[in-house]
Simulated assay, not measured.
Amino acid sequence: MIAVIGIAFTFFMVFGGYLLAGGKLGIILKSLPFEIMMIGGAALGSFAVANSTNSFRQTGKDVLKVFKGGQWKKEDYERLLQVLYLLLMSAKSNPIILERHIESPLDSNIFQKFPKLLGDQAAIDSICDTLRSGSMNYSDPNQVEELLDRKIEEIKHHRLASVHGLQSIADGLPALGIVAAVLGVIKTMGSIDQPPEVLGKLIGGALVGTFLGVFLAYCLVAPFAAKVKAVVDEDMSFYLAIKEVLLSYFHKHPPKMCVEVARQNIPHSLRPSFSKVEEVLKNAKVDS
């Protein structure tokens, strides 16, 4: 909601100020479709050349994060801590039961308590692969931490690809605006024999390209890139919480302490309260 308000406020202040200063929208509106075609088309075409099909699609999807926000909410962290607690309790009571859960998470009655988690393969792999490594005596906490750090860094690198793509578009838009403006000047020079009032409109239309390139770059695309990056950084806290629980487990801490260590490292705006986590864990049952 705040993103929509911000965009509306930007348009209102820019074009409202222009109108209050005595500007006329007619020249801008007349040139706008052609300028958007040239500038927007060149930006999208250049981006398509520089990126793979998957990156192109992913960037389009990630733009929605500007309006939807992060993937994980406070209640998701509560469910995550519950699932991890149940897994650790299973490992403590019967490692064979744990193996069944981590080898087939889609069929696990523990993972099924959090269907949204099952939709994130990166999170499932982080949990199952790490617990699986413990069953193979790969349980040195330092090695586990290094393994999880690499996995988290890989996830983050992949999810920041769209940020780099959006920022590259933002960096190129002012130059593409100049290209459109130059074409407008060329068009104007072809009508140099026209009276001043005609030439004035043609020159004004040419300058719309420069304005549009700069406006789109710094008022829309660059802020979109910054917002997507902020959302990605926020979402990475989910994987860091998984890391904290599992790392504490390999340090031989009790399951409840593992969960509490992770809870305290969750960002404040998303962190469930101690009493809420206690209630969730108290109602959790270790299924066989």
Rank of each mutant, 00 (worst) to 15 (best):
M136Q: 15
I169N: 06
G69E: 01
A161K: 11
E146P: 03
L106T: 13
D149A: 11
S139H: 05
R159G: 01
L81T: 01
E78T: 12
H101A: 02
S90F: 00
L29N: 09
S133I: 06
L117V: 06
L147V: 10
L32N: 05
G40Q: 06
K151T: 09
D76T: 01
D129Y: 09
M136T: 11
G26C: 05
K65Q: 11
Y138L: 15
D76S: 04
I27H: 05
F47R: 05
P95Q: 07
S168N: 12
D62V: 02
F56G: 02
K156H: 11
A170E: 05
K116H: 08
A123W: 00
E78I: 11
K74Y: 03
K61V: 09
L25Q: 04
F67L: 13
Q82L: 08
G23I: 07
E99P: 03
G134L: 10
H101P: 02
C128A: 13
S52F: 06
L64I: 12
T130N: 07
L88V: 04
H157W: 10
L81C: 07
D149S: 10
L29G: 11
N51Y: 05
E103T: 11
L25P: 05
K151F: 09
R132V: 04
Q121E: 13
K73D: 10
M136D: 05
E35K: 14
N54T: 12
T59W: 01
R159P: 02
P105H: 05
D171T: 12
N94M: 09
P95E: 03
V63A: 09
L148Q: 06
A50G: 10
I36A: 09
T130S: 01
S104I: 08
S135Y: 12
K24Y: 11
K113F: 04
S93A: 12
E35D: 11
I169Y: 03
I110C: 01
G70F: 03
K92P: 04
V49S: 07
V163Q: 00
F56L: 14
R57M: 13
Q121R: 13
A91I: 04
L32K: 08
G60N: 06
K61L: 15
F34C: 04
C128T: 15
F111K: 00
V49P: 02
L81V: 03
K116E: 10
K61N: 11
N54S: 14
A122L: 08
R159L: 07
K74I: 00
S126C: 15
L148I: 12
G26M: 08
H101V: 01
L80W: 05
K151E: 13
G60S: 07
L147A: 15
S135R: 15
Q71F: 03
D120M: 06
S135D: 05
L106N: 13
K73L: 13
S31G: 07
S162V: 04
V83A: 06
S139A: 15
L117D: 00
E146N: 14
G26H: 05
D120L: 07
I155L: 10
A161Y: 02
V49A: 07
K65L: 14
Q112R: 12
L118C: 05
G69K: 02
G70R: 08
L131V: 06
